[in-house]
Design a protein around this nucleic acid. Sequence first.
DNA 1: ATTTTAGGAGTGCAAC
DNA 2: GTTGCACTCCTAAAAT
Lengths: 78, 78, 78, 78
Amino acid sequence: MAEAADDRLRLLIERIERLEEEKKGIGDDIKDVYNEAKAVGYDAKIMRQIVRLRKMKPDDRREMEMVLETYKTALGLG
Amino acid sequence: MAEAADDRLRLLIERIERLEEEKKGIGDDIKDVYNEAKAVGYDAKIMRQIVRLRKMKPDDRREMEMVLETYKTALGLG
Amino acid sequence: MAEAADDRLRLLIERIERLEEEKKGIGDDIKDVYNEAKAVGYDAKIMRQIVRLRKMKPDDRREMEMVLETYKTALGLG
Amino acid sequence: MAEAADDRLRLLIERIERLEEEKKGIGDDIKDVYNEAKAVGYDAKIMRQIVRLRKMKPDDRREMEMVLETYKTALGLG
DNA sequence: ATTTTAGGAGTGCAAC
DNA sequence: GTTGCACTCCTAAAAT
């Protein structure tokens, strides 16, 4: 019976759509926070870098930063 | 007083981090649904196309599909 | 001798930079063609879809299109 | 006469496809350089950061780095 | 281990 | 001018 299969697919799609709406809502909330930050003078792009750095394990972060410094020195970007 | 500014930035960052966690959670839920769909034989990639098509306004979708057909015919992809 | 290592890194970086410039140049050329197409009335976005479809193996493309049709029918997007 | 229009579209598409092939070729060359660099012990990910930094105007780069340092200090990532 | 795929970030363009 | 869209790039995850 094809209708059963159709329904199953439709239900899966609808679940995904609901979840994507939620996800979009949260994405909008995040955007709001960045705008709020910008309004008081913070730089959103650099805040994103901070968020990324804080996601890393401290040891990995330090290691990465050290290698970066080394390369920068080698290239005269010190 | 610099500490106040530091705190303000930190609080903004922490709000963003909390929201990103939530967002990631929902992203994982979506992934689960796709896996569930795959497990019963559906093609996730094509399901994503369906989700995209359903996001469009029906008139826009039909218009787009018509133009696409025209181009496909012109290119011998009919 | 650190300078030798520095030079090696610098040379690699410079090769990459040269290649990226070339790549950017070609990207600009592609953009020009799309603009030219738009100027005579074609829809760039749909042209991109055509390019994507033509990249696929014909059998894969037909297979994909058939599954897509099936799903669209199931969802009432026919 | 529809065939003329079809041809025009086809020719535009083919020009794009040729350019995209070239672009892909260069992309592969870039990948080769990164692999070569990796083979002698360099970290490709950090090399990409270097390439990005070198693309910036020196003043902008320094400004950005200073702000980043400020934020890192504020967040205890110093 | 290699290639593909998806998600996220940044950039530039375009429309309003 | 700024908001949104589309494209590119990069990284991480997946699949093979």
